[in-house]
Amino acid sequence: MAQVILFLQQLLNGLSLGSIYALIALGYTMVYGVLRFINFAHGDVYMLGAYAGFAITNVIYRFVPLDQYNAISRHTFVPIFVCTAIVMLGAMIFCAILGMSIERIAYRPLRDRPRLTVLITAIGVSLFLQNMTQFFVGAQPQAFKQLIPVRAIEGLGDLTVLSSQAAIIISTIVLMVFLRLIVMKTKIGLAMRALSVNPTACSLMGVNNGLVISFTFALGSALAAAAGILVAMDSPSITPLMGNLPGIKAFVAAVLGGIGNIPGAVVGGLVIGVLETMVEGYGFPQLRDAIAFGVLIIILLYKPTGLLGRVEREKV
């Protein structure tokens, strides 16, 4: 029984970690879908999302010191929820604009250049963002102030579910539903899907490709910002380099799910998250960060299209 509880506990921890990867992976996969390129700077957008949230939270604390609440109850729910939503939305908007600007300034002028040129630029953008952040806020970690009181939720027996984990999983589900609605039910979502199939035909049909690409960047960046804040709820120490590893792991998640495939990114993120916590929980904590790379290498060698991806052959 204890074994089962332990397993469920790991699974739960994995799902909450995996939700974060999934949110970031969506940005990789959507951008890949429309532009066929890996936005190396995406992990840094996630990092900046956390910093934007950090700044907004500090402002909010002048009016509502949220750490006065030490439990979520009927009375505290509304202020906590409203403040968290403000932080979340603010950071998402900030990152949406950031993502669009990056695309405009650095990637768009390279639209018809070799993919490698764009990749190198993206590496440059990534280094620039993290080092400029470091210049402004310093390299030392900052403590993200409490948004929701982190407590174990009661009434679940031996299973420990933290309120932050619950928040992560619930927020992720809500965001996914929103994303799905946007992609499947709106005109611009349709344009995104069309663009990923055939950009030339798309622009011939009167779609404004530039606009759709901007929108895709905005959407992906906003999701990354949400991930940044959700992470900070759970482990409230943020640094300018915090985007590097999660960024790469989320990329692996996107590849695992089949890059360009939106449900695939979610599945991939959850799988990587669960794998990591399992490996860590069952005795190999030092290998935790190497797992993602191992998965990447295996998947690219044996099933380069990922779990849900489709085959694409180079035409000769």
Partner: peptide
């Protein structure tokens, strides 16, 4: 602003700009 020395002492800022500007 934080001390501007930081900009000059961090080689990665220089490198990142070099990468972006070179590619463009």
């Amino acid at each position: 602003l934080p001390p501007l020395q930081g900009l000059l002492e961090n080689r990665l800022i220089l490198y990142s700009l070099l990468l972006i500007i070179m590619m463009l």
